[in-house]
Amino acid sequence: MPSSKLDVGSEPMSERTEPSDDQMAAQFERIIRRVKSSMNYRGSYSTRDILGSLVARWLQSGEWERLKLLPPADRHIGESVRRFVLDRLEQLRRRGAHEELPEDLLVVPDEGTLIELIDAAELRSWIEARIGDLERGVVDPRVRIPVTNAAQIGHALRLHVSGQTQRQVATALGISLGAANKRIFEGTNYLVVLQGIESGLGGST
């Protein structure tokens, strides 16, 4: 589960020193911002988004799962991503009539930035999977905040993350704007709570 950016770790809260209110608030804010910004549809892309999408593809290739088994010093994430992106660009270059795509060196960002991109891609894919669960009516049993009509919430979230406005979601589902807002709102809160649990917050009694 994507929690590499979070310094909370995966130990249960009872086994650690209780963080201060400020630390707790900062952790909450980080989790909430990460989840909500991942759910926002990116209409306009920057280079970072493009690279993010390539990193997401790299992630899907299974390379990251392989590297995670290695000691951190032996992972060489930058080189792996660079090779993968170069291969992908090479494939694209062969598709077109033009030969203008770069063949030379590819500079990828430093490892810290790459970890951020990997983290974001993992989170996005985690969110997609959890929305899929909701669509099938599956609620994670660890979440104790009640979620009613999981499938309806899942459908609303699916449209929301694909870039539709609340009004469009309401029209597509044939419900009122208020009902659409409520479903998106409840679904987002559920994902935040579940992500908190994945990060080691509130997962045990």
């Binding site: 909450f28 909430i32 979440v143 987002t188 935040v192 908190g196 649990i197 509130g202 009694t205």
Partner: peptide, 24 residues
């Protein structure tokens, strides 16, 4: 007697108030 429930509820409450993404 339920710290996990407290933590989930706090997260939920903060999520509800945080940011303009929610339609509150």
């Amino acid at each position: 007697t339920d710290p996990a429930m407290r933590m989930q509820a706090l997260l939920w409450l903060h999520s509800q108030k945080e940011g303009p993404e929610a339609e509150g």
